[in-house]
């Protein structure tokens, strides 16, 4: 499978950008020239220059440094939120698929109900109650994003559990837990991983939208979304405050989508290469 992924140019391209972003996020303090929270009104809204490669915002903070630090938040929220969704989805989906019957109908009905809510509305409602901060945003995005993955793993397990090797394992006295974790999940995880990669892209977009509305990451913590929110206030004065964070979101989401498409093609034997 790795070979097929590497043969897929767009997947390699996406993965490359993601790797680069992870490096940027990890080494943010080394890359950023300025303290992202350092306010200097005298240098407010300066255009891009050698001093400030992407200009400064309305409080005179260096935009490049803020965006570098914001990449940490975007990736952190993307990966942890979807990691949570992956965990919940795989647990629910494999229980539903393996045990069937009542367990299955209760879990899947619950997933159906959750899917009826426009996700952003649900997220907003929970934020109204628990308040906006990085941790809450992460958990809420995760807990509203597991349903698709649960459906995928359930469908995989429904077909896998009738295979001979599973019957053989059961005949040898393997426990349900052993069969699910050792035989079924590893063999059925492929489509879920594809969905995970797309999910990270979605989570990063959701975080940006929430922060843009002032209901996500709160200032002074920099996030691409809240930099854009501040940019809206100087619309028509400082184009750089609007262009660059948007481009950062676009490139990041694009990279995850490309990797996701590439993974999907690599896992799908019917795609012609």
């Amino acid at each position: 499978m790795m070979k097929q992924i590497f043969r897929n140019n767009q997947a390699v391209f996406g993965a490359g950008i993601i790797l680069l972003l992870i490096l940027v996020a990890v080494f943010a303090p080394k890359i950023a020239k300025y303290d992202p929270a350092f306010i200097n009104i005298q240098s407010a809204l300066l255009g891009p220059s050698l001093e400030h490669p992407l200009g400064t915002d309305s409080l005179g903070r260096d935009l490049f440094s803020r965006m570098i630090y914001a990449s940490r938040i975007a990736l952190l929220i993307g990966f942890i939120a979807m990691g949570l969704a992956l965990g919940v989805g795989v647990i629910f989906g494999s229980l539903a698929g393996y045990f069937g019957g009542k367990t299955d109908s209760i879990i899947m009905r619950f997933a159906d109900i959750m899917l009826c809510f426009p996700r952003f509305f649900l997220i907003l409602a929970v934020i109204a109650v628990v308040g906006p901060n990085i941790f809450n945003v992460m958990v809420i995005i995760g807990l509203t994003g597991w349903m698709g993955m649960a459906r995928l793993i359930r469908a995989e397990i429904l077909s896998l559990k009738t295979r001979d090797y599973v019957s053989a394992s059961r005949a040898l006295g393997a426990s349900h837990f052993f069969i699910i974790t050792k035989h079924l999940i590893p063999n059925g995880i492929g489509p879920v991983l594809v969905s995970f990669v797309f999910g990270v892209a979605g989570a990063i977009l959701t975080e940006a939208a929430l922060s843009f509305l002032g209901l996500g990451v709160q200032p002074p913590n920099p996030s691409w979304g809240n930099i854009l929110m501040e940019g809206k206030a100087v619309l028509g004065v400082g184009w750089w405050v609007i262009i660059f964070p948007g481009l950062a979101i676009l490139i990041t989401v694009l990279a995850f989508n490309l990797l996701g498409e590439g993974l999907r093609d690599a896992l799908n034997p019917r795609v012609e290469r």
Binding site: L228, K232, I242, G246, V253, L254
Partner: peptide, 22 residues
Amino acid sequence: FMGFAAPSFWIGLLLMSFFGVR
């Protein structure tokens, strides 16, 4: 791919600043 990846509020801001403000 661009359309999928570009946040709607960003496109909104760009259109606003171009057609509305400029």
